[in-house]
Design a protein around this nucleic acid. Structure first.
Lengths: 228, 228
DNA sequence: CCAAAAGTGTTTGCTCTACACCCATGG
DNA sequence: CCATGGGTGTAGAGCAAACACTTTTGG
């Protein structure tokens, strides 16, 4: 008999989104405060149940939009958490995504029916979180740092046009490490993932050239091989 | 109201396992032939529904054991496929795993109630597959090759003790590329992921030193960074 | 003219790669 | 003693890392 007649119980399926952005020179994660049990009043990742007519990615984008109003974001599947005891209500499997949103996009943060409020938290000052969400964020952060080192993903945290100094700051903030200015510039330009725009950005000091990400660029750097 | 009262329909949840091994100097994938619709008679990845009382990894191991009798395998979560139309029966989300089993483990391959028969297929001679399983295998293969280049995962395809030449062959088969003997040996020994055993392996020609994987070894090689 | 940030090359050391011959055993 | 596979080192090229001063603008 087919298992599609609902004769067997199924795990519930949710998506959770680890949404990173830069705020005030720090890497931040979006959290919501739960209005209902379990863990009512605690902070948690935005997320919710996957509907029957939407793909996992659509579900993640929907949840993200519900919380922030943002429709455009870099989104990548992270990992699927399926321990049997991770939700006190019963068996819930969650597909975790991580999202990067650029610093210039205005983010609407407001409470909804199920959510008391939402807010940004620096990744090194997280509150206690519901479920296994601390673990999920930890993994998302490792993955972000790792990817940043060998792909061009860092641009996703910046506005469409940015200076090389801004870009370098972004890398320094996320990697939590100082980088050499000349080497950084040489490398990022040689990699061919960004291109000049005609604009310059004024302000104090000498005006800076604005660059943008080349959507056609190959984003991946070949890893150093263990074996020749 | 809680979604745990079955008032909302849920996607079904399955696991599928892409199981690699070496056979006759080729990289092979384990496939089963489906006995029941949909896709009756077609080849597919071993897999099945996640039970309520088992984790995802336990489900993958159970499916693998059902098909091969093997209980010990390197197992890693690959990706979760959740397009709404990927299964003609309805909404089925599958968590794909990839597994590596060592060449010396005897594998029992036999039909069961739901499976006409099972068999190994070289990765470059796959039959037409059910569902989106061709895509899943393609992704698993890319991931395997990629990981092989910067981690020590290749040992999982070999017996517990192996010669350096065997190890090099493994890499050459999976990567589909010839490697330099001296460089290979120097690198793999410098990496510190394997250690000598006291044993030698006889046969034709000069006896070869047997090595084993060091379980405490750090398996990952730092990727070449895009930015300094 | 001063402050502030942008922009620019070279040298040194290390790592990767290419490459060919001798060794130990079994038959 | 011969066939078979095991084992070893070095030289050259390319890449990565460290490092300090000049330029342009606004006030």
């Amino acid at each position: 008999m087919s298992p599609f007649t609902y004769e067997y119980p199924r795990p519930a399926l949710t998506v959770d989104v680890v949404c990173f952005t830069l705020r005030e020179n720090r890497l931040n994660v979006l959290l919501i405060q739960r209005a209902e049990p379990p863990f009512a009043g605690m902070w948690a990742l935005p997320g919710g149940f996957v509907q029957m007519e939407e793909s996992l990615e659509q579900a993640a984008l929907r949840e993200l939009e519900d919380e922030t109003g943002i429709r455009e974001a870099y989104l990548e599947q992270l990992y699927t958490y399926g321990e049997t005891n991770r939700d006190p209500r019963g068996r819930v499997v969650t597909v975790a995504y991580f999202a990067l949103i650029s610093a210039d996009k205005p983010v609407r943060i407001e409470g909804t029916r199920e959510v008391t409020r939402a807010g940004w938290f620096p990744v090194d000052e997280l509150p206690e979180l519901a479920f296994d969400h601390t673990e999920i964020i930890g993994y998302a952060l490792r993955r972000l740092r790792y990817k940043l080192e060998y792909t061009a993903i860092g641009f996703e945290l910046l506005p469409g046009a940015f200076t090389l100094t801004q870009l370098q700051y972004t890398y320094e903030i996320v990697l939590n490490e100082k980088l050499d200015k000349r080497n950084f510039r040489r490398r990022v330009l040689q990699a061919g993932v960004i291109e000049q725009t005609p604009q310059m950005r004024g302000g104090e000091g000498r005006p800076a050239r604005l660059y943008r990400y080349r959507p056609d660029a190959v984003a991946e750097i070949k890893a150093r091989r263990l074996f020749p």
